[in-house]
């Protein structure tokens, strides 16, 4: 079972910045929010493997033709991909709502804990997929989600349908293609015969003025 990555959770809260003092009271809030979130969260994921072609700045996979140069670049050399969807579930959303009404300081901490837990859970799932793919001589690319770069967010819905996410894990998209429950991820995870080396995470992101950028 995935756990909150506290280093990340603290970073989301800005606690990595020097100048302040994480006192006993804040530590206690972090601890109790973490426990409350881990008790409420019901992480679930679903994935399916599909053949994939990359041509002329577009990716074709599971009946979708995705016009995205960033995604095409990211999946260059991949012949297959996992379509992946994960969520912390409706209970997490309810906890976040309840805390927003009663104590917004806890809502903020719970948000950070949830983001970190979701990321850790997705990593855990993808590590499992990587282990499955290894005997075939295949390597996993990092997750790439609708809304990243020029990957149109409108692909949330076909991606969710392709893995039956509404039915299997209760994950849906709103009219504006926001995921609900909100603490959720969808992504393409490429499979290729060569390991992945280019920069990932913050270093790969074009938003250089982001408050949460590492390094």
């Amino acid at each position: 079972m995935a756990e909150i990555d506290w280093k990340e959770a603290r970073r989301y809260l800005g606690l990595h910045r020097p100048g302040g003092n994480v006192d006993k009271q804040l530590e206690e809030s972090l601890r109790s929010c973490g426990a409350e979130l881990e008790a409420a969260a019901r992480p679930r994921a679903v994935w399916r493997r599909f053949p994939l072609t990359v041509e002329n700045g577009a990716v074709t996979c599971a009946g979708m033709v995705i016009p995205s140069a960033h995604l095409a670049r990211h999946l260059k050399g991949c012949g297959e991909a996992y379509l992946f969807a994960a969520t912390l579930g409706a209970e997490t959303d309810r906890l976040l709502r309840r805390s927003a009404v009663t104590r917004v300081s806890r809502a903020v901490i719970l948000q950070a804990c949830a983001a970190s837990l979701l990321e850790a859970y997705c990593d855990e799932c993808c590590d499992g997929l990587a282990r499955e793919a290894a005997p075939e001589g295949l390597f996993l690319r990092p997750r790439f989600s609708p809304g990243y770069g020029d990957f149109p967010i409108a692909f949330q819905r076909p991606l969710l349908e392709a893995v039956e996410a509404p039915k299997r894990i209760g994950l849906t998209a709103t009219g504006a293609m926001m995921l609900t429950p909100t603490k959720s991820v969808t992504a393409l995870v490429g499979l290729s015969t060569t390991p992945w080396c280019p920069p990932t995470g913050c270093a790969a992101c074009g938003k250089t003025d982001c408050a949460f950028r590492k390094g």
């Binding site: 606690l15 020097p18 100048g19 302040g20 006192d23 804040l26 809030s29 917004v104 300081s105 903020v108």
Partner: peptide, 13 residues
């Protein structure tokens, strides 16, 4: 920068 966001909010509460 001497106080973090959760602390600001605890004071607000």
């Amino acid at each position: 920068g001497r106080l973090y966001l959760p602390q600001l909010l605890m004071s607000a509460e």
